[in-house]
């Protein structure tokens, strides 16, 4: 029974993503409906207004959402495998806020910087953040409660966030820009930022695919992985570097986006099973689909205002987190001696 189900999914999921992508081109401000976007896609439209709305506004936004969803979905799977923690997510563990602090620092130190520098600062922050996460996860020797890591992420987030907030508050002129950037808005396509980010995310996704075999071996435990001819430490560091690359780029592109790396891998596990080889592609597709739907609802929910897409995702992700924590009895196990 399993094979036909997954075959159906392989066809249906990309179709679903395409449908959402078309919807993303067809809805929103600007008075351009789905007929117009269909004409434009077929190359039959010569209307300058349609060209502007679709080519300059909605298409970059669509590409951005697709890339972000794929990147964060993949990063979530990698991080969860490396830390052996179903709650590991770049937002919850503080990698996002590390990258955001990097960007804020870059903007504060060198105002008016180039897109390349912005990506560089975000990558630096994300690398530091994810290395710290790896160290913290290893500090417990794999014996510690999954929830402890989440709380450590909360601590990291608080520190980074307060520094970022201070940088934003010091330069009052930049506060508005920071505000929208920090909330993970997809609304402002930075033209110079989009294409390099897409390339970097493509590189990251390819590298993630390459890590599937070593990581699948790691899931069996370090000893078995060694017996299978894999070296655990380089695989782990490689995964963390890819996580930093994907997260840093996505944060530079759209600000920290929470919970996507929790929701997409969770749904992928439910749909495709626990092996990483099947989980990763599904998580990438589901991440894109989720991001597109969140972006669409952020546009339509409060129109003419725009709800921050991070808030929309938190609205889905936070209940999922609560449900996961409450459902899984083993999650709530805690190491002895940590209570008061």
């Amino acid at each position: 029974m399993k094979a036909p189900k997954s075959a159906l999914l392989v066809v249906l999921l990309p179709l679903f993503v395409l449908l959402l992508a078309f919807a993303s081109l067809s809805f929103g401000a600007g008075g351009v409906g789905w007929q117009d976007s269909l004409h434009w896609l077929l190359g039959a439209s010569s209307d300058a207004h349609v060209d502007l709305v679709l080519g300059e506004l909605r298409l970059p936004r669509l590409l951005k959402a697709l890339a972000l969803g794929a990147a964060l979905g993949a990063a979530g799977v990698l991080l969860q495998t490396v830390t052996r923690n179903p709650l590991a997510e770049t937002g919850l563990l503080g990698v996002n806020s590390g990258a955001a602090l990097g960007v804020a620092l870059g903007i504060a130190l060198f105002a008016g910087q180039s897109p390349a520098a912005q990506i560089g600062w975000a990558l630096g922050g994300a690398t530091l953040g994810s290395l710290l996460v790896l160290l913290l996860a290893r500090a417990g020797g794999g014996q510690s409660s999954p929830l402890r890591l989440v709380l450590a992420g909360l601590a990291l987030t608080a520190t980074c966030h307060s520094l970022t907030a201070w940088l934003a508050l010091v330069s009052t002129a930049n506060l508005d820009r920071y505000r929208f950037w920090l909330l993970g808005s997809l609304a402002h396509p930075h033209a110079g930022l989009l294409w390099p980010s897409l390339v970097l995310i493509g590189v990251g996704l390819t590298a993630a695919m390459g890590l599937v075999r070593p990581l699948s071996a790691l899931a069996l435990g370090d000893d078995l992985a060694r017996a299978l001819g894999q070296r655990p430490a380089p695989a782990r560091v490689g995964a963390v570097v890819v996580v930093a690359l994907l997260t840093g780029t996505s944060v530079a592109l759209a600000g920290p986006i929470p919970f996507l790396g929790l929701i997409a891998p969770y749904c992928a596990r439910t749909l495709a099973g626990v092996t990483i080889a099947s989980q990763l592609p599904y998580s990438i597709l589901l991440g894109s689909a989720l991001m597109l739907s969140a972006d669409l609802s952020s546009r339509l929910l409060l129109a003419p205002f725009e709800a921050p897409v991070s808030a929309v995702l938190a609205g889905i992700g936070a209940p999922l987190l609560i449900w996961m924590v409450n459902r899984d009895a083993t999650l709530a196990l805690m190491p002895a001696g940590t209570e008061r």
């Binding site: 989440v150 709380l151 909360l154 409060l302 938190a314 936070a318 609560i322 999650l331 805690m334």
Partner: peptide, 23 residues
């Protein structure tokens, strides 16, 4: 209940409320 569970649930609720605040 002893343990981290109530804390992570609280963290989830905090994110939810923060999302409301952001909106």
């Amino acid at each position: 209940t002893r343990g981290y569970r109530v804390l992570v649930v609280g963290l989830g609720i905090a994110s939810l409320l923060r999302a409301g605040f952001d909106i």
